[in-house]
Nucleic acid binder design. Structure first.
Lengths: 212, 212
DNA sequence: GTCCGATCTGTAACGTGTTCTTGTTCCCAT
DNA sequence: ATGGGAACAAGAACACGTTACAGATCGGAC
């Protein structure tokens, strides 16, 4: 007898996973991240991830719909922790600097983090254009976190313009990162241009700040 | 006797090609473009390109170092012709509208062109993050053409700020296109946000225009 | 016209993402 | 405890980008 209904092979939602499954999922992401930092995203193979994580190759595809999905989840995870670091660091600073100055510091430190982990920058870029719906979902979550962090850094900008400003900075960040890791510009140029963008787009809101 | 020096297999520069070779190159790009619009970039195979162009599969790799390189050359070609259309259309318009208005028209028509050829939008996005040096070169050329076109549309903006503005618009365009083709936003939202970006970033230079 | 090296064709082979298969293990309702 | 279905492991199989190879063909030097 022929099996006519093939079982659903798309990943189950994270919140519906048992503890063992959550651990497998964490192991997969951790293995992917460590392998990427060690050998780079372009040499990473799913067979290696499977081996290092202790999860069978076929099984990884029950957790992540594709290599892109796994990599997107991995970079989203790393980026999220980076953002919380950046925000909390910015918080521990004496008040005074303008929104533009704070934002410049923010993106500068962010770029520096990617500079320290160039393979993760490559990872972020290589995954950004994925059309896998699950990968897309992870990237969307990353963009939301990014937007929230940027919002926290520019509290005094009116919400109407703030939305557009966040998109500008987000797109410019992604674009300059892309130009860098693909060799179309140097890291210094990328950083400088990103800061120029931030300043150009935030200076209109400087006047509201009466400090020094 | 073992051959120890493998022949250079990287693509020769275009300007050093014979007429027959230039024709092969054109055929490859044309085949790639037509196949992409017919079946989409994700289903396009190098074997099909080879077949349709009448160039042997192995030979295509003497013209383009990789699938990415071929696709980058193809979308750069199409985008270039799109830009000349957009610029010449903008030129045939009576003077008067501000730089911001002209730029909004420009990106709106550009987005509309991609809307008519969604597979080419997908193509552009899928190729944007390529790390193939030859593909990167083609993309850099595309970005330069883009910058020149944008410059032509905003003559009255001072060159110092113009550079940053061009990057902002270029990155936002690419980013919104990406968000659209990966299903992270709708085309209308992408278009609207891109226009918001243009307006926000160009309104400071409106005062210089005494029209109306 | 002939020769020679470069280029092209046609096809087989290889590597890696993804899927399939088969047998095993886990988990839970009874 | 146990029977049964879902999930997993191990590995083979498949698809397509890329490379390798063995002749055919082109184009310039003589």
């Amino acid at each position: 007898m022929v099996k006519v209904t093939k079982v659903d092979l798309s990943p189950r939602p994270v919140e519906a996973m048992s503890p063992r499954q959550l651990e497998r999922r964490r192991n997969l992401i951790a293995a992917a991240l460590s392998l990427v930092t060690e050998i780079g995203v372009e040499r990473l193979q799913m067979r290696q991830v499977s081996e290092r994580s202790g999860v069978a190759l076929g099984t990884t595809y029950r957790y992540f719909s594709s290599k892109d999905h796994l990599l997107a989840a991995a970079i989203a995870e790393w980026h999220r922790s980076l953002l919380t670091d950046l925000v909390s660091e910015g918080r521990g600073r004496r008040a005074g600097p303008s929104a533009s100055d704070r934002m410049v510091r923010f993106v500068r430190h962010g770029m520096r983090a990617y500079q320290r982990q160039p393979e993760l920058a490559r990872l972020r870029v290589s995954v950004a254009a994925s059309t896998d719906p699950f990968a897309s979902e992870a990237l969307q979550a990353m963009a939301r976190a990014d937007g929230a962090a940027l919002l926290a850094v520019m509290v005094e900008v009116p919400p109407s313009a703030g939305d557009v400003v966040r998109h500008i900075v987000g797109h410019a960040w992604q674009g300059e990162l892309t130009a860098w890791v693909t060799g179309r510009t140097t890291l210094d140029d990328a950083r400088r241009r990103l800061e120029d963008v931030v300043r150009l787009v935030l200076t209109p809101y400087e006047a509201a700040d009466p400090a020094a």
